[in-house]
Amino acid sequence: MPTFNRILLCYDGTREGQHALKDGASLAQELKAEVHVLSVLNTSVWVQGADITSAMPVDLITESAKSVLEEGLKKLTARGIWATGHFVVGDPLDQIASFANDLKVDLIVVGHRHTSRLARWWGGRNDGLLLDRVSCSVLVTMGPQTSADAVVAGTSEVGEKARPAEHF
């Protein structure tokens, strides 16, 4: 098994991000690895939801996203893990790959959200390309699937209600 000395946890506050943070924290503790947490404010969401986001001040959106990063760092600190936080605005795939390469991490931990093929096509998602952009290992956390998740997993993101985040 490769040695993971430097881990990049991708955290956005969603249920999937919570799973990535929790699973990544457990692994980092066991391996005594250096931990970095990356929170990306996704600019493509602004383009897709231009009507909604144009009505909200950019500073408010940015501050809210930064508070999500601080929340993740506090959760790690409560577990006895010291981590360096990084906040950036841009495309998540570009930013995750860039930070992973710049920080020379051995492992990236990301959460996965089940979506239908239609939802991926509609949203223009190309998640698989992260693996093509990095030279380190990638751990994709799934988290426990509840019966409610099983029903939602087959639906598209359009019209889907937000699911509550799991407690850390």
Results as ranks from 00 to 15, higher is better:
120 R>H: 04
109 V>C: 14
38 L>R: 10
136 C>N: 05
118 L>R: 09
47 V>M: 11
46 W>H: 10
44 S>I: 00
2 P>S: 13
26 S>R: 13
165 A>K: 09
82 W>S: 10
107 L>V: 03
84 T>S: 10
26 S>E: 13
58 V>H: 08
167 H>W: 10
149 D>G: 04
79 R>H: 00
124 G>D: 05
132 D>Y: 05
92 P>I: 05
89 V>I: 12
27 L>P: 05
80 G>H: 11
66 K>C: 03
125 R>A: 14
37 V>S: 02
126 N>I: 01
55 A>Y: 03
35 V>F: 02
100 A>I: 00
155 T>V: 05
24 G>C: 10
139 L>F: 13
140 V>F: 01
89 V>P: 00
91 D>K: 04
139 L>T: 04
89 V>F: 01
92 P>S: 03
55 A>P: 00
111 G>V: 04
34 E>Y: 01
120 R>Q: 15
151 V>E: 11
46 W>T: 05
139 L>I: 06
25 A>M: 07
129 L>K: 15
2 P>Q: 14
121 W>F: 12
124 G>W: 03
3 T>V: 07
57 P>A: 13
92 P>W: 01
146 T>L: 08
66 K>Q: 15
51 D>T: 05
41 L>N: 14
124 G>E: 02
118 L>F: 12
110 V>A: 07
21 L>I: 02
63 E>R: 12
104 K>R: 09
73 L>M: 05
109 V>S: 09
53 T>R: 07
163 R>F: 06
105 V>S: 06
54 S>W: 06
75 K>M: 09
164 P>F: 06
101 N>F: 00
42 N>T: 01
15 R>T: 09
21 L>P: 09
75 K>L: 09
124 G>M: 01
38 L>M: 06
6 R>Q: 11
38 L>T: 09
27 L>S: 03
70 E>G: 01
109 V>N: 12
36 H>R: 05
104 K>I: 00
58 V>A: 11
103 L>T: 06
143 G>I: 01
121 W>E: 09
163 R>K: 12
12 D>V: 02
51 D>N: 08
46 W>Q: 08
72 G>L: 03
65 A>H: 10
72 G>V: 06
117 R>Q: 10
37 V>I: 12
159 G>D: 03
50 A>G: 02
123 G>D: 14
67 S>D: 14
135 S>L: 04
13 G>W: 09
55 A>T: 12
133 R>A: 10
38 L>Y: 07
77 T>V: 05
31 L>Q: 06
123 G>T: 08
15 R>F: 02
137 S>H: 13
72 G>N: 07
47 V>E: 14
88 V>R: 09
126 N>M: 01
139 L>H: 08
166 E>I: 14
49 G>D: 12
70 E>S: 13
99 F>H: 14
109 V>P: 14
78 A>E: 15
100 A>G: 12
61 I>R: 01
150 A>Q: 13
89 V>H: 00
